[in-house]
């Protein structure tokens, strides 16, 4: 009886040993993958930490910039209030009025509307009355 022909096992490719060897390599790869994963995770966490740190720093600088802008705006606000106060000075207004040819009236007329100037909800109506009186003036 002739045994069926079968290829000779190549060195290192022995049947049962082959499977064992594969199992061994699979475990090694899994370990390698795990370490790789851990490495990537650690690296990512490291970069994430750096990124968050940079983001925080950037935000802090932005905050400082905004605070600086706020201070500038506040200083500007007071400069403008000062300018407005100077513009309201009676001496300046009188000078400007004189330049415009305005003079103080020689005769004064007083129009009196009963109750006007007092407290109460009817003040607006009294102003309407006054406007009517003024409207009737020549």
């Amino acid at each position: 009886m002739t045994a069926p022909a079968r290829p000779m096992a190549a060195p290192g490719m022995v049947g049962a040993g082959f499977r064992v060897e594969i199992a061994h390599r699979s475990g090694h790869r899994a370990g390698w993958q795990a370490w790789t994963l851990i490495g990537i995770t650690v690296t990512a966490a490291f970069f994430l930490m750096i990124w968050s740190r940079i983001a925080l720093d950037q935000t802090a600088f932005q905050l400082q910039e905004i605070e600086s802008q706020t201070a500038s705006a506040e200083a500007r606000y007071w400069d403008l209030r000062l300018e407005a106060a100077r513009l309201q000075a009676p001496a300046r207004i009188i000078e400007a009025a004189a330049t415009m040819g305005m003079v103080y009236p020689e005769t004064l007329r007083t129009i009196e509307v009963a109750g006007l100037g007092g407290d109460g909800s009817e003040t607006e109506e009294r102003w309407v009355d006054l406007k009517a009186v003024l409207g009737a003036q020549p």
Binding site: A75, W78, D79, R81, L82, A84, A85, Q88
Partner: peptide, 9 residues
């Protein structure tokens, strides 16, 4: 309410 003394930078 008119300013008579103001502090500015």
């Amino acid at each position: 309410g008119r300013e008579l003394a103001v502090t500015v930078d």
